[in-house]
């Protein structure tokens, strides 16, 4: 039982990181119809800046995180303003290519600094610290990952439910022209979407970097696991992104923990493909996901 709880706890923490990445995807997709393939690199850039600010510039962790957030949000907003704005009305695949371009640009930018190998993560607590309870180790980073993800979800819920700009973003996602006719500035909606997506990705990146203890320029490839998460949850559902992320994290860690016990013949490393198996099954039986609306454009 302790073994199961241990795995479930680790899976939940991992799932929270997927959930944050998936949230960014979904918020951008809902408000502008763009699938942002550069989402993962915001994790890398965020974690990288926080690390450099801590270890090279000697800044306090929280200040470093603040700077990382500031820069990634700025990159997101400026990319929307100076690249995507000119792509409105172009074919979906052209827009996707542009986001892939941003992905490569960001990763290469990090590599070019020459400081991207075996980067130590910025962290306010010991990387391996945690508490033991009932034979289960609760890592401090995992606990904070879960708590901060929860806070992000509550904050986003309040934002979308009760604030003027949150309402405007939802309205624009439902009917852009009707929202325009209410006086909603659609450029502001896009900028907000990219800013929020970049911010949650940076938070995910900082926790992920601590989780893997040292990182390099491939940190952002984790975003590939956010795809099964958003497909599972439904591409256009914000709660779906969170649920999908957590489920994928749990499935992955539980497979990892039990694959050699239960199904020895699959060997090790089967956990890397279970999220995608789940994604394929979902696409076959329920292509709009658990929470998505049926009419989602195929890309």
């Amino acid at each position: 039982m302790a073994y199961f709880i241990q795995l479930a706890f680790a899976g939940l923490a991992q799932g929270c990181i997927y959930a944050l990445v998936a949230l960014g995807f979904t918020i951008i997709f809902k408000s502008s119809g763009v699938i942002n393939f550069a989402q993962g690199e915001f994790l890398l850039v965020g974690a990288f800046i926080a690390s450099v600010a801590t270890f090279e510039w000697g800044l306090n962790f929280f200040l470093a995180v603040f700077i990382a957030l500031l820069i990634t949000v700025l990159i997101g907003v400026l990319f929307e303003r100076f690249a995507l704005r000119y792509m409105i009305g172009r074919p979906a695949f052209a827009i996707i290519m542009i986001t892939i371009g941003l992905d490569i640009l960001l990763r290469t930018g990090v590599v070019m600094t020459g400081k991207a190998n075996e980067r130590p993560p910025a962290t306010p607590y010991g990387i391996a610290s945690g508490v033991n309870y009932g034979g289960v180790h609760f890592g401090e980073n995992a606990l904070w990952t879960i708590l901060v993800t929860l806070i992000c979800c509550v904050a986003l819920y309040i934002f979308f439910r009760y604030t003027r700009y949150g309402l405007a973003m939802r309205a624009a996602a439902i009917d852009q022209e009707a929202a325009l006719a209410m006086g909603v500035n659609i450029r502001l909606v896009y900028a907000l979407a990219w800013g929020i997506a970049a911010a949650v990705a940076t938070i995910a990146g900082i926790f992920l970097a601590i989780n893997v203890t040292t990182f390099d320029s491939t940190l952002g490839s984790i975003a590939l696991f956010a795809f099964p998460a958003i497909i599972l949850g439904g591409l256009d559902s914000i709660p779906g992104a969170v649920v999908g992320g957590v489920v994928i994290g749990l499935v992955q860690l539980l497979t990892q923990g039990y694959e050699s016990h239960i199904a020895n013949f699959v060997g090790i490393g089967f956990d890397t493909i279970t999220p995608y198996l789940l994604m394929i099954i979902i696409l076959l039986v329920r292509p709009y996901g658990l929470f998505g609306t049926r009419k989602v454009e195929r890309v």
């Binding site: 309402l167 939802r170 309205a171 439902i174 209410m182």
Partner: peptide
């Protein structure tokens, strides 16, 4: 063109 997935009150707020 009401905002279908928003409540009546939220539509008015918009």
């Amino acid at each position: 063109r009401v905002f279908s997935r928003m409540s009546v009150r939220e539509n008015l707020e918009m």
